[in-house]
């Protein structure tokens, strides 16, 4: 803000600032401090327009640590559903909670099936509509596709038939 140096034609706030400066630096050379308001407002306006354009109101899912999602050129909108994640270190997570090593779960899926049944029961309690079978599956891009296919097979057997494979969108 450019302050008037004279008390004439200054409003109350400017007068206060001038007086304060005079008292503080009495006898000293006044250090000039100018803030270019026009540029600042321009910058703020541009920032607001840019951020409003990139604003997204669609649901977001948390990407599990240790999972680097693959890229896709045909992504769909994310749906709100439980998240099953296969991390690079070979562990399987359901809603950010460790289920166990993926290899072991693929061989003995009892614990995973139990947790999936709990999700189904909770769905039935909170919804009047039939179970949609939607689940988000996050898997690291470098893991074997057969491992993902095995986990998808377990999900299918547990009535989770609509599997949303999480990807990083590049349109």
């Amino acid at each position: 803000m450019i302050l008037n140096q004279s008390m004439v034609a200054a409003d109350a706030f400017e007068k206060h600032l001038i007086n304060r400066r005079r008292k503080k630096h009495w006898g000293l050379k006044a250090a000039g401090f100018t803030l270019m308001l026009t540029s600042m407002v321009d910058m703020f306006s541009m920032l607001v327009v840019f951020l409003l354009q990139t604003f997204s109101s669609s649901p977001e899912i948390l990407v599990t640590k240790g999972v680097e999602l693959p890229d896709s050129i045909t992504p769909s909108v994310v749906k709100e559903a439980p998240v099953l994640a296969i991390s690079r270190d070979g562990n399987l997570y359901l809603d950010q909670q460790l289920v166990g090593p993926t290899k072991d779960v693929a061989k003995k899926p009892n614990e995973l099936l139990k947790k999936l049944n709990v999700i189904k029961k909770n769905w039935a309690k909170s919804h009047t509509t039939p179970f949609t079978g939607e689940i988000n599956l996050q898997a690291d891009r470098d893991i074997k596709s057969t491992v993902v296919a095995q986990i998808m097979g377990i999900l299918t057997s547990s009535q989770f038939q609509s599997i949303e494979l999480a990807v990083v969108g590049h349109r």
Partner: peptide, 18 residues
């Protein structure tokens, strides 16, 4: 507000029907 709520990585899905 917009900086806090900004989404920098667009997560999408590829739907698979078994």
């Amino acid at each position: 507000f917009l900086l806090i709520t900004a989404v920098w990585i667009e997560i999408g899905t590829v739907e698979v029907k078994q």
